[in-house]
């Protein structure tokens, strides 16, 4: 609820919502049983077609030609190179955005300064920019035709159609995830606990590790998980800056695209199933964290 109350929308829904169990239908404020059943049927049919069928289809297509073919598609050198590149990109982008998120949330939630609301809106900006445009802005900056293009070419530095461009585009599209989870959480927690730690003689770092971090750990983990899922799965932005060089600048989603366009659907779905698994793990982790932080709120 806090997100909606504060007018900020959490991209993966609203965690830590006060969950109210549906009460058994009250005679006066519920619909007739037939209407209830009809609405449930409509909702489940819609979600069945749009969520369950596609999810099942990914794995069905991936395993269509047997488990051997499935494994072979994952063990193929280009697929392994794509997996490595995706892991590398994520390993750079997520920690940087984590550092940024904690630092932005600390400044915004614990101090008063003018222009705070503008800063929060600017941090959210990458979410409203189309992924394709996110890639484009870096091409215009670092591509051959871009502002720094000639200088970079003269010094033999490659950013666009190379790994740095992929990392930059990934950082851009996952930029707000950690910050937007932490800012409302830390604002709600206030500054008393940290102030007490300081008064009792804790150093800045002691205060951070022993007071702040334990308080924000679930929110932090939540943000990191969402950031990670998007970083590994980003397609549009990375597609613009990658150059699609097989085995060199292809991430997992780009490799899926190439396989699919080569009419190698089984291999495409085999690699895609890794990303679908990632999505499922993300959803499970998200539910677990919501349950944990809910438990914590109730426990207090």
């Amino acid at each position: 609820m806090r997100d909606t109350l504060r007018g900020r929308f959490s991209f993966f829904g609203t965690p830590r919502v006060k969950k109210r169990e549906p009460s058994p239908a009250l005679y006066s404020t519920s619909e007739p049983a037939i209407v209830r059943r009809l609405l449930i049927a409509i909702a489940l049919t819609f979600l069945g077609i749009f969520l369950v069928v596609p999810l099942a289809a990914v794995f069905a297509e991936a395993l269509k030609k047997g488990f051997g073919t499935y494994l072979a598609a994952l063990r193929e050198p280009d697929a392994l190179a794509a997996i490595r590149l995706t892991l590398l990109t994520t390993a750079i982008a997520v920690p940087l955005n984590l550092l940024f998120g904690v630092s932005a949330a600390w400044a915004i939630a614990k101090f008063h300064f003018p222009g705070k609301q503008v800063l929060i809106t600017l941090i959210d900006l990458p979410f409203s920019v189309s992924p394709v445009v996110s890639g484009l802005v870096y091409v215009l900056l670092f591509g051959l035709q871009g502002w720094f293009g000639p200088w970079l070419a003269a010094h033999d530095i490659k950013i666009i159609f190379a790994i740095p461009g992929i990392v930059l585009a990934t950082i851009f599209v996952t930029f707000p995830f950690v910050a937007r989870e932490l800012i409302p959480l830390m604002q709600a927690q206030g500054t008393e606990e940290e102030e007490a730690a300081r008064v009792l003689g804790a150093s800045g770092w002691q205060m951070f590790w022993r007071v702040t971090l334990p308080n924000i750990k679930w929110g932090l983990l939540y943000g990191v998980i969402l950031c990670n899922a998007r970083a590994m799965g980003e397609f549009g932005a990375v597609s613009v800056v990658s150059g699609h060089i097989r085995g060199r600048t292809n991430t997992i989603p780009l490799h899926v695209e190439i396989l699919y366009n080569e009419y190698n659907a089984t291999a495409a779905f085999a690699v895609a199933s890794l990303l679908a698994l990632l999505a499922l793990v993300t959803l499970a982790a998200k539910s677990f964290i919501e349950w944990k932080s809910h438990e914590r709120l109730v426990g207090r």
């Binding site: 993966f12 829904g13 169990e21 989603p253 780009l254 899926v256 695209e257 999505a279």
Partner: peptide, 28 residues
Amino acid sequence: RYSFPGRRLVDALVDFPFALPTAVAGIT
């Protein structure tokens, strides 16, 4: 408002389109 078997699972699954990379959604 309603309770039915599997409600929590369905609730969690609603976020699936956010978590699934768009390229996978596209080919599927």
